[in-house]
């Protein structure tokens, strides 16, 4: 049973979190199908404002092309987005060095996601955690199943928006970055991302059970039951989704109420009016 199913019985009032994710490219929010064929889903600043009012528990802002095109995250837009956010804001994309983390924090981010650079040089996680505290550092892991049917399940890390294979075992890597000082893991299943067929639950559970830090499940949400499963079966502490919210299939509030109706402890108060 996950920590959030036990909450009501067990002396724990921490809530599961819903995190809308703004994937941004060229100043616009987009959500690709398997990261290819991007669709436009609006202005990031407007999205942030809407999600703050809607009671999102956190917001995630990913500059998805940053490491591919070798450009830094657009600090200005982060700053404008952060202006609208009275909930925690995680920003990722193109973070290569301690200075990049500092710049994002100064622009208004509360946490910074490190992806490709953490795979290339895991020590960066430790350096940033030491400088800014573990709670600031989110390691984003993009994993894909590499085992064939009938073999024991195995997932490996992919970088550069899922395009580059690394041969690194995803569970081992998660344990490593947790030990180095990551405060949280944002886990995206590359097999599921954009498919709307639900989280990769065996992957999510394998990593959530292997580390003592919170895991955010990401990739594949198509309906509200998927969010529920991420917590109950994937053992994640938070669930991240983009298109189901951006395109108005469901509101954050609907999602929270549905999850609460399934016995998950959710926050239903406190929104900015």
């Amino acid at each position: 049973m996950s920590q959030f199913m036990q909450a009501t019985q067990q002396n724990n009032n921490l809530k599961a979190r819903i995190i809308p994710c703004l994937d941004v490219r060229d100043g616009r929010v987009v959500k690709g199908v398997n990261f290819v064929g991007l669709k436009d889903a609006g202005d990031p600043v407007e999205c942030a404002k809407i999600y703050d009012a809607a009671g999102a528990d956190e917001l995630c802002f990913l500059d998805i092309t940053a490491s591919v095109e070798g450009r830094g995250t657009l600090l200005n837009m982060v700053s404008q987005t952060a202006e609208q956010c009275f909930m925690p804001l995680t920003v990722g994309g193109g973070v290569r060095a301690v200075e990049d983390v500092r710049a994002l924090l100064l622009a208004g981010a509360d946490k910074v996601g490190i992806n490709t650079s953490a795979v290339k040089r895991p020590e960066l996680v430790g350096e940033c955690a030491e400088k800014f505290g573990n709670q600031c550092i989110v390691v984003a892991i993009d994993a894909k199943r590499v085992s064939k049917d009938g073999e024991p399940l195995r997932w490996e890390i992919f970088t550069h928006g899922g395009r580059t294979e690394t041969g690194i075992d995803a569970v081992e890597f998660a344990i490593k970055v947790a030990n180095l000082g990551a405060g949280e893991i944002l886990l995206t299943s590359m097999d599921r991302d954009g498919t709307k067929s639900g989280f990769n639950l065996p992957l999510t559970r394998a990593i959530a059970d292997a580390v003592s830090i919170p895991v955010i499940a990401s990739g594949g949400v198509g309906n509200l039951d998927h969010l529920v499963e991420g917590i109950t079966e994937g053992h994640a502490s938070a669930v991240l989704a983009a298109s189901i919210f951006h395109f108005g299939d469901y509101t954050v509030e609907q999602a929270k109420k549905y999850m609460a109706s399934k016995g998950i402890s959710m926050r239903l108060d406190g929104y900015v009016n």
Partner: peptide, 16 residues
């Protein structure tokens, strides 16, 4: 400490 609830550290998120 009292009972293994599998609770994560850091304590991260919204609490009452």
């Amino acid at each position: 400490a009292e009972q293994d609830l599998g609770l994560k550290v850091p304590h991260m998120g919204w609490n009452l």
